[in-house]
Design a binder for these strands. Structure first.
Lengths: 220, 220
DNA sequence: CCCCTAATGTACGAACCAGTACGTTATTTG
DNA sequence: CAAATAACGTACTGGTTCGTACATTAGGGG
């Protein structure tokens, strides 16, 4: 909004005492970590403030209240995976191989962003009320869906893929697998004594999603 | 513990003014609903008490504190699905068909027990700290795993199933799919405008998990 | 039938926590 | 460089919430 000169502050330092953008971003970062760690109701605004170089007053100055802060945390978290998916170019690949690429990308993202998965879990406990309040999020389509739709169409035309599945079904199946490993890591480990995120299973699981989807799609 | 005469109180009524078992069970029921609804930190002990025919004092009398109450809520929730799985008899079926049965059972349970799925989500946000504190839960094996192990062994012997998957992998994949529909229902609906629990998708999804797993297992 | 204890209710406290009133300083703009 | 405003800090409050001290009663055992 303000600060129209992003060049001369490139190397971050304590030159600028007051920096709205930096303060805002720092709050958002800390809040994301704190919400992911403790849940919405478990997180403390005072604690978030304490872990920032600024004060609680600033949180309310920039974000009005705790709910709105969580809304903007979610907005930023979703933006990351969206931009990642946008860079996916698989139109030149064999449909089956394209599915593998997409599954791999989703797998990698969820594995390397556990906080994102946790934030989504938390938002689901709250019945997505924050997303509903965010025009940015409720109007945000998923670029991966367009990609998927094209892959499926090509696969069907080539006679390779079954006809009774749409892009959302496939996206759901891939997400389910990738989300579960992080979202249910702790109860699964407590009960079955297996850490799904143990590096020992990484390659196997990564191949497993891709194999599952491809074998399913190519079975008629 | 007390109440050694379970016969003459069969038809529930206000005969017995004081009934430890009834009070305890009523608290547990209400607490389960409240925790599932609001999360651990969102749930209020006062609110749970208010929705019971007894008082908050009784909650602390029977459960010591909020954490222990949640522990016992979890214990009861897990017991339900465990006993369900125990009744599964698929040793006489073709391995592929056995997998379908197991997937169907898991699918049905998760669909009809959204509160269980939510409680597990909540417990994962808290890193399974309550399960860890419960000897009953951390020592509770999953009967479905033995069933699965036998199915996989038979499938491999018959040359139908691939060799590089174990029972936990399969259980994970099935659970992931079934859990996701309920656990991520709200964010998925908010963003993609599709209610995964809409009856319109029920049969399709139910067949989908089974097909995915069977096609995956039978592909070498 | 009386006493003892398990079961229950009332009222309260102390800590916590989201949010704000009020005051101050840096930065920008004219 | 002065006035305006954006950015920031301190100290506080009002309501909430887990947990408990204390009082009471029902019901079973002797």
């Amino acid at each position: 909004m303000a600060a129209p000169s992003p060049d001369e502050v490139s190397k971050s330092g304590p030159e600028r005492i007051r920096d709205a953008d930096r303060t805002r971003a720092e709050i958002l970062d800390t809040a994301a970590r704190e919400f992911a760690e403790k849940g919405f109701d478990g997180a403390r605004v005072d604690e978030i403030a304490a872990k920032t170089r600024t004060t609680k007053r600033m949180i309310y100055y920039y974000f009005t209240n705790k709910d709105q802060l969580f809304v903007e945390v979610l907005e930023r978290a979703y933006t990351v995976i969206r931009s990642l998916e946008q860079n996916l170019d698989v139109d030149h690949l064999d449909p089956a191989e394209a599915i593998r690429q997409l599954a791999g990308l989703t797998f990698d993202h969820h594995e390397s962003h556990p906080d994102f998965v946790r934030l989504v879990s938390i938002e689901n406990i709250h019945r997505a009320e924050h997303i509903a309040r965010s025009t940015a999020l409720s109007n945000l389509a998923n670029p991966a869906l367009d990609v998927l739709t094209r892959i499926l169409a090509r696969g069907r035309e080539a006679g390779q893929f079954r006809e009774d599945v749409d892009a959302l079904d496939v996206h759901m199946a891939i997400s389910a697998f990738c989300v579960f490993r992080t979202a249910n890591r702790y109860t699964f480990n407590a009960i079955f004594d297996r850490d799904m995120l143990d590096p020992a299973h990484h390659d196997h699981h990564r191949r497993m999603v891709a194999d599952m989807l491809v074998s399913y799609l190519t079975t008629r």
